[in-house]
Nucleic acid binder design. Structure first.
Length: 310
DNA sequence: AGGTACGATTGCATTACATCA
DNA sequence: CCTGATGTAATGCAATCGTAC
């Protein structure tokens, strides 16, 4: 599933690779993130009106300053901590020199063992920083920060595909001077955090729905109370036409409509219930004109509505 | 000092594919 | 040759850690 780039400005698209399209994994089902509550009222097929990258929400100045600081530090250290110098990367890649990044556990562990045998083998073993653990002086893992450019390229790539096939991963890794594993991790985290953001938005949306429904419910309860009060009040019976004028409905064998009343604004008491889901219909105060004997309105069983709705 | 962002690790689930009885 | 069971690699995700800011 590929979404037009234009759409990405307004919606988040979780696309999944063709290869694993048959996966039953819930995460593999296409999710179109398109939160536009006013346009797509369904609570669950929706999504957020959100920037394609949540990092975009960071003020540009902050981000550039951030990158600036990183680059300054890198410069001061005489090396970009996030980027493997191209020459070094190529050299190590071809020589297969092992220069583990920074983590202790990255050397061992199931995943690492797996990938060490895979196609990522060569690049996987190349340091992304050009600094070995020995040079670091201790075994503590240093936090790697991707440069502004690296992040931008990754974001751009993520917009196009939020998963990568091995070829794309390798290509991107090469282009960025990172290990394929780092690219993979970045995409993994990006997907996870996108999903998290979406969940938060979903939650907010459902909360609003809930509030709306609560309000609607309160309003309807009040309406029911008013109708009951009206039904039981003496005035209600005073308005009744004498029985002699009542007509029998031939269909349901109930007393039907009396002669036309003076009110021309009468509406049926048995107004059909709006079948649309109420939650998404803007709650608006409805007038409660009430004349159960209105000629044009009452069809059959005029009080059924009261019974069923109370 | 505490919170947040984010790169990295780990463990598990799923799928595809190969092998074997 | 076909088929079902089993093992393995690849990949994704959730949870979490650890570090930089």
């Amino acid at each position: 599933m590929v979404v037009d780039k234009e759409d990405l400005g307004l919606s988040l698209s979780l696309s999944f690779p063709e290869k694993r399209a048959t996966a039953t994994n819930s995460s593999s089902s296409p999710l179109q993130l398109n939160l536009m509550p006013s346009a797509s009222p369904s609570p669950f097929g929706h999504l957020l009106q959100q920037k394609s990258s949540w990092t975009d929400t960071l003020p540009p100045s902050d981000r550039s300053m951030d990158a600036c600081r990183v680059e300054t530090r890198a410069f001061l250290k005489g090396i970009d901590v996030n980027r493997l110098p191209a020459a070094t990367a190529d050299a190590e890649e071809e020589a297969g020199v092992s220069s583990p990044n920074s983590t202790i556990s990255s050397i061992s562990g199931k995943r690492s063992e797996r990938e060490a045998n895979g196609e990522d083998h060569e690049l996987e073993r190349a340091s992304s920083r050009g600094i070995s653990d020995e040079e670091d002086g201790d075994n503590s893992r240093k936090k790697l920060r991707l440069s502004k450019d690296q992040s931008a390229i990754l974001e751009e790539s993520f917009k196009e595909h939020n998963t990568l096939n091995p070829k794309q991963k390798l290509g991107l890794a090469k282009r960025l001077g990172l290990r394929p594993r780092q690219v993979e991790v970045w995409f993994q985290n990006r997907r996870a955090r996108t999903k998290l953001k979406q969940t938060e938005v979903d939650c907010e949306y459902l909360k609003r729905c809930c509030e709306s429904l609560t309000e609607e419910n309160r309003r309807l309860q009040k309406e029911v109370q008013e109708l009951r009060a009206l039904k039981l009040s003496p005035q209600f019976y005073m308005q009744m036409t004498p029985p002699t004028t009542l007509t029998m409905c031939p269909s349901c064998e109930r007393v039907g409509a009396p002669p036309p009343s003076s009110s021309s604004t009468a509406v049926p008491i048995s107004t059909p219930v709006d079948p649309r889901p109420r939650a998404l219909v803007p709650a608006h105060p409805r007038p409660i004109p009430f004349n159960p004997w209105a000629t044009t309105a009452i069809q059959h069983r005029p009080f059924d509505a009261l019974h069923t709705r109370s």
